[in-house]
């Protein structure tokens, strides 16, 4: 009656499905690993402290990524400073104050749509709004503002999701103790939502650091002979530098591009690692 062999068909299906799922994990990882290894091998011969600390040059062996690296970090720092507070505040409004109102619903649908807009469109917006209209010029500030706009929808949606996961019973407990809405949000809701907010922010910052298209439009330059020295300074970023090298006629520059990609990936991984450590630190406080 309960013999194992009776369900043999079901067991084969079970195994088949398991293998399909496993393949779905392994195949993309293999492709990714191949790409990274390939790039690392190509770039290895150029990777050195000198490559990281040198300025661009016409001679491939002497060219380095310093201005682009500093520019990337500068722009990303600005992006985070602008996008995170605004994004979290917007999410708090949508989830805690504007809940269920038709305004909030319309805003939310539009934010979801904005997250799907191609990044070059944000570049054009940044060019019109920040570079020209606001008179920021082709500056670090304009780039930071543009990328902040680009990742804002992601930050808002991730933060909103994190806030939504805070149980309503904790809000009620807080109100029941005579706390105001603001006291409740600041001391109960936000601390609990923080790990989730950080996760969303990490993902969006990672996306921003690899963006090329909007910064081409905003006016990043590929040949910087000095470091960006202020918000109004012109700038370069790593993806632009890499892109520029791949378009040069001399094949040696392709090696530079590969080495540049390794630097970009390393920066991204370092940022992610730092952010994940930070997140785990806050998560550990929760039990």
């Amino acid at each position: 009656m309960m013999n194992k062999d009776q369900r043999i068909g079901g067991r084969i299906a079970e195994w088949g499905f398991r293998i399909v799922c496993l393949a779905a994990v392994i195949i993309p990882l293999l492709v990714l690993a191949t790409l990274i290894v390939d790039v690392a091998i190509d770039g290895a011969q150029r990777l050195s402290w000198e490559f990281i600390s040198s300025y661009p040059s016409r001679i491939p062996e002497q060219a380095g990524v310093l201005p682009a690296l500093v520019g990337s970090l500068f722009v990303i720092a600005l992006t985070g400073l602008l996008a995170i507070p605004i994004g979290v505040a917007a999410a708090v409004y949508l989830n805690e104050y504007g809940k269920n109102s038709w305004v909030a619903n319309i805003i939310e649908i539009n934010i979801a749509n904005l997250a799907g807009v191609p990044s070059v469109v944000y570049g054009l917006l940044g060019l019109g709004l920040f570079v020209r209209f606001a008179g920021m010029g082709r500056s670090v500030l304009a780039a930071g503002c543009t990328l902040a706009l680009l990742i804002l929808p992601i930050v808002i949606m991730a933060s909103r999701e994190a806030l939504r996961s805070v149980p309503g019973s904790l809000r009620e407990a807080s109100y029941g103790l005579g706390a105001t809405k603001w006291e409740t949000i600041r001391q109960v809701v936000l601390p609990m939502a923080l790990p989730g907010i950080l996760t969303g922010t990490i993902l969006s910052i990672s996306r921003a650091i690899g963006e090329t298209a909007p910064l081409i439009v905003v006016g990043a330059v590929a040949y910087m002979t000095f470091l960006p020295d202020g918000l109004d300074s012109s700038f370069s970023v790593l993806p632009i530098q890499i892109y520029d090298w791949t378009t040069r006629p001399q094949p040696e520059f392709l090696i530079n591009a590969a080495a540049g990609i390794v630097v970009l990936l390393s920066v991204m991984l370092l940022l992610n690692a730092a952010a994940i450590l930070l997140r785990n630190k806050y998560q550990k406080r929760m039990y």
Partner: peptide
């Protein structure tokens, strides 16, 4: 008010939970 489901604040210690009303306000 005391609710149906016990809802201590998860990020807070026992002592802080007792003081929650004062800390919050």
């Amino acid at each position: 008010m005391v609710f149906q489901k016990p809802a201590p604040f998860p990020t807070w210690s026992i002592a802080d939970n007792v003081l929650a009303g004062l800390k919050l306000t």
